[in-house]
Design a protein around this nucleic acid. Sequence first.
DNA 1: GCTAATGCGCGTACGGCGCACGCAGTGGGG
DNA 2: CCCCACTGCGTGCGCCGTACGCGCATTAGC
Lengths: 234, 234
Amino acid sequence: MTDRESRSAQLLWGDRTRAPRGPKPSLSVDRIVAEGIELADLEGLEALSMQRLATELGAGTMSLYRYVPSKDDLIALMLDAAMGAPPQVDEGVGWRGALEACARSCAAVFERHPWVLSLAARPRTMGPNEVAYVEAALAALSGTGLSSAEMIDTVVLLNGFVRGVAPFLAAERDTDRRLIDMELIAAHGRRENYPTVAAVLGELGGRRHRNADDSFEYGLRRILDGVAARIDAP
Amino acid sequence: MTDRESRSAQLLWGDRTRAPRGPKPSLSVDRIVAEGIELADLEGLEALSMQRLATELGAGTMSLYRYVPSKDDLIALMLDAAMGAPPQVDEGVGWRGALEACARSCAAVFERHPWVLSLAARPRTMGPNEVAYVEAALAALSGTGLSSAEMIDTVVLLNGFVRGVAPFLAAERDTDRRLIDMELIAAHGRRENYPTVAAVLGELGGRRHRNADDSFEYGLRRILDGVAARIDAP
DNA sequence: GCTAATGCGCGTACGGCGCACGCAGTGGGG
DNA sequence: CCCCACTGCGTGCGCCGTACGCGCATTAGC
């Protein structure tokens, strides 16, 4: 419980009621966080500075520090707020349907807020919404007969997959930016170092457009098939 | 082929021979990149500044820019260098053994160089080593009867899993830092919002230490099981 | 060996960053 | 009504990435 994390943890988990003494605040943590998310969505995390954010809010730069202890804490709040609550799962869809719903909802968040990815890639303390996602996934698995360790590992597996593929999906959706730039490789005479890549990409280039959703669904199905096999035959 | 990417692409993919005119350089791109990796390993990416790096190398800050066009380009070079070459795969281990070797080697890199994770989470242009990993994985799958699209999707799935799961593994290895801090949640009276999480974590807390390698192996097996099912029954 | 061309190390400077500090003013509780 | 907790925010500090250009080392061509 160091100072550094207790500050952001207090804001993440504590209530934000303040003593009604003194003048009314003209801003609020929620408004700052919301504006920060909007700015990060529009121009990326690197465009988010306290000065820029304050300007956007029509306030002085230092005024923000009345609400948020540091930029890092603000970003932690933005991360959890951007996640939002996990989806409501219909009864009767089974563990598989529930996990699919969680995974798809999570992937949708990463698509809407790409900057979340680089933040979620580092170890941190999860906020209420993030833990709620874990709760939903664990609850879905609680009747399957998996052990506690296996349940956690399954959630880790699924969450890891969604977070890991998101950059690939983003790259597949973006027709300009190529993760693997075969022209660049060929231009430097390295094409023969990667024969299989060249062959596979060449064959695919002839086909109609690569669909990022297909990649996601393919991976999701393989994972859930593997988990199902484990559940059915322990 | 914008200016911004052609610069780093040139360094990533081009040869680094220089005309032998003028005085001998006292540094080299490789030495700068290596020192940058060491610094990032020891103190994290946020401690890596050009001034700090130059001091570490016993050079003036601006001297680095004779070798590297910008900090971003340096980081791109560090990323690919930190990946290293993919593992040599023994003949006869089959597609499954080869993919396992790639996945484990990749995970080892992320454990040695945690800062790579936050970089790999954003869309970028892959370097020679990264593409070599893809080549190795695709080559392993080339005799399985999967279509080109399915081969790519499988590589994306596996790579996504390894990258997504790495932060969890790091958190499991770190006994202090908790991704889910149940004491913190309880301290704010939110424990009852997450009954399943509390139950599962409580049951696990009684057991001896959580092993990160177990989580990784569990996920890897489920994924490969799912892929095997697809290969055997198309 | 001389000269011109070239690449090198790096000092200086600029704009922007996060944020510590402290001041002036506001408005509710006693 | 007065006190003081609390507000917005101006100023200033240290650090950041890097554009620019100077002085010098080194080599190619003569």
